[in-house]
């Protein structure tokens, strides 16, 4: 019952390529949306639940991608091992930077994460001997899962869908646990959280590390799927887009982040048609959603349904007490 929404989502994801076979839009755009969902769900743990903004999350996305790219092209590591190494590297770097960065508040935190993201991007562009510089790295081998070589759009759709569902499941579990409640408590009132015995620095660090590892996971899959990475995929604009997905869908809701990621992916696909007007419309939409629907699309639309649900739950809970 707790995971009802998850099972419905999983069923839709699984049915899409069956209902629309050989559909370019479903398989290719769906894959891109899946990666965005992984990124947004992870970032939502940090921004939505722990209440800590990050304007530099593309750095971890890039870290995972470049770890996979460099290790599998230059050192001939098996792709799965490169992926795991990327996750560990992202986790470690996030852990080291979490304490000094998350000590900051509000706009100072925004600045620090922004700076972190820009520095990471500059390194991707400048450390040419490792990253290939602005031209990027090509020839990244596809993912090899214990002998099965992932090949073709449909197989990639399956792999990324599975990875995305795993991340959504982990995130749903985490939020509804002691760890997740501690996160939300830090957001709700840092004073009260500390008074309940919550080590707030440690809790924020956990959120930062988990969201970094999820981002690196998406990055690694992205690198193996595209067979090519370049710094353009991990710049400031991408970091801002990631935050946009989280906020667009609605903060502090895993399915909100899912919706935001899918909505922005579709929007980007749709706006390509408008060419030069793309930027204008993108900016106007961002402002409009934030001004008129500050709780985000998903939360705004589901609130009515939720109110109904909580009434039912309350009466059910009362009966369970008798």
């Amino acid at each position: 019952m707790r995971l009802a929404g998850f099972y419905i989502f999983a069923a839709v994801v699984a049915l899409l390529p069956v209902l629309f076979p050989d559909n370019y839009f479903v398989v290719v755009v769906g894959t891109s949306a899946g990666l965005h969902v992984i990124l947004a769900v992870g970032l939502n743990l940090l921004i939505g639940y722990a209440g800590q903004i990050s304007l530099g999350h593309a750095a971890f996305f890039g870290l995972g991608a470049y770890a996979s790219a460099i290790l599998s092209t230059r050192f001939d590591w098996p792709s799965l091992l490169a992926l795991v190494a990327g996750l560990i590297a992202a986790g470690l770097i996030a852990w080291v930077f979490a304490r000094p960065i998350l000590r900051l508040r509000g706009h100072y935190l925004a600045m620090a994460t922004l700076g972190f993201g820009i520095i990471a991007h500059v390194i991707m562009v400048q450390a040419t001997q490792w990253t290939g510089g602005p031209d990027g790295l090509a020839g990244i081998p596809p993912l090899n899962l214990l002998g099965w070589q992932v090949d073709g759009d449909l197989q990639w759709y399956g792999v990324i869908a599975a990875a995305m569902l795993l991340v959504v499941w982990l995130s749903l579990n985490l939020v509804d646990s002691q760890v997740g409640r501690a996160l939300r408590a830090v957001h709700g009132s840092e004073f009260a959280a500390r008074m309940m015995g919550i080590d707030t620095a440690r809790t924020k660090t956990q959120a930062f590390v988990v969201s970094a590892v999820f981002a690196a996971f998406a990055g690694s899959l992205f690198a193996h799927q595209q067979a090519f990475v370049s710094p353009d995929s991990f710049n400031l604009t991408v970091s801002v887009e990631l935050v946009t997905m989280v906020v667009l869908g609605g903060l502090a809701s895993t399915f909100g982040a899912v919706c935001g990621a899918i909505a922005l992916t579709l929007l980007q696909q749709g706006l390509v048609v408008f060419e030069d007007y793309e930027m204008l419309i993108h900016g106007a939409l961002l402002m409009a959603v934030m001004i008129f629907m500050p709780q985000g699309l998903f939360v705004g639309l589901t609130q009515a349904a939720h109110r109904l649900g909580s009434t039912l739950a309350r009466s059910k809970f009362r009966r369970s007490l008798d």
Binding site: R181, R184, H187, G188, S189, A193, M195, A252
Partner: peptide
């Protein structure tokens, strides 16, 4: 002054 977790 209340320090409830209003988000829960």
């Amino acid at each position: 002054n209340l320090q409830l977790f209003f988000n829960m």
